[in-house]
Write a protein that binds this DNA or RNA. Structure first.
Length: 257
DNA sequence: TCCCATGTTGCTAA
DNA sequence: GTTAGCAACATGGG
């Protein structure tokens, strides 16, 4: 799915577009979403985010939680034409919101207001000591550790490679083998990269688009993702692609130790 | 035709 | 208990 920066981009845009507004009507296009109850008459009181999950607080007291997974996108629609692969439509008096999702992996859930989460969000400052402690007994590759959402939420496949390159840590190292100094660099790189990516409205390596169908710009700042065979921007060594836990992983074999 | 894809879950086996 | 590996979900692009 979109990773944290892409979901954060949507949250910021949606806050301006729909918070305080009443849902006039909702329409389910994809029967996989038949369980979503009617939303007509509810007001959207807040739009928030937990990692890659977006949560709307509704005036009725409940919340709607969206997981966009791989290809879910929200588009603001002012004319008649709906985007391709529209699965769900929400109508406001100011316009319509379409959930488009070619692969149909996205999920929508009605949930009670969620309690405060114990998991650190990738956009908030991370504490290196907490990461070190959480990884102490974990032998899985540090890249998988960063992506598993249980310690830090929001990091996906693209940003995991970027973060580890910036922190000069080899992705296959067991999580428990990182020293406190390594975690300091990982923590710093995570905040820095995710914040930059939010400022760029995400990464459009394939087809990511924001609420207004604009591409992000962080793909112009990627240093390793998708660049196997290219020179490492740090040292000039040829970048490699390996598969870790079934996912493409890009790294520099010289400057990442 | 084959392989790949920004995610998550659940199964099996080591 | 932990982890690796795989399949599943479903579709489109190169």
């Amino acid at each position: 799915m979109p990773e944290l920066p892409e979901v954060e981009t949507l949250c910021r845009q949606l806050r301006k577009a729909i918070v305080g507004r009443i849902i006039v009507g909702s329409r389910i296009v994809d029967r996989k979403l038949d369980h979503v109850q009617t939303l007509a008459g509810e007001r959207v009181d807040a739009v928030s985010r937990r990692g890659k999950r977006m949560i709307w607080s509704l005036s009725g007291g409940r919340c709607l939680a969206f997981q966009l997974r791989m290809t879910g996108r929200f588009f603001w629609v002012e004319g008649e034409a709906l985007p391709p692969h529209t699965r769900f439509i929400l109508e406001f008096d100011s316009g319509r919101l379409a959930l488009s999702d070619p692969r149909r992996f996205a999920t929508i859930e009605h949930i009670p207001p969620p309690p405060e989460s114990a998991v650190a969000d990738g956009l908030s400052p991370l504490d290196a000591k907490t990461l070190y402690a959480a990884a102490r007994k974990r032998t899985l590759p540090v890249k998988s550790f960063l992506m598993d959402q249980k310690t830090v939420s929001g990091i996906g496949n693209i940003y995991a490679s970027e973060i580890l390159h910036a922190a000069r840590v080899a992705p296959r190292r067991p999580a428990c083998s990182l020293k406190p100094a390594d975690w300091e660099r990982v923590a710093g790189a995570t905040s820095e990269i995710l914040q930059r990516a939010v400022e760029c409205r995400g990464t459009s390596v394939s087809d990511w688009q924001d609420l207004f169908a604009c591409r992000g710009e962080y793909q112009d700042h990627l240093r390793v993702y998708g660049r196997a065979g290219c020179a490492c921007p740090g040292c000039g060594q040829t970048l490699r692609r390996d598969v870790i836990a079934g996912r493409s992983t890009f790294f520099c074999p010289r400057c990442q130790k």
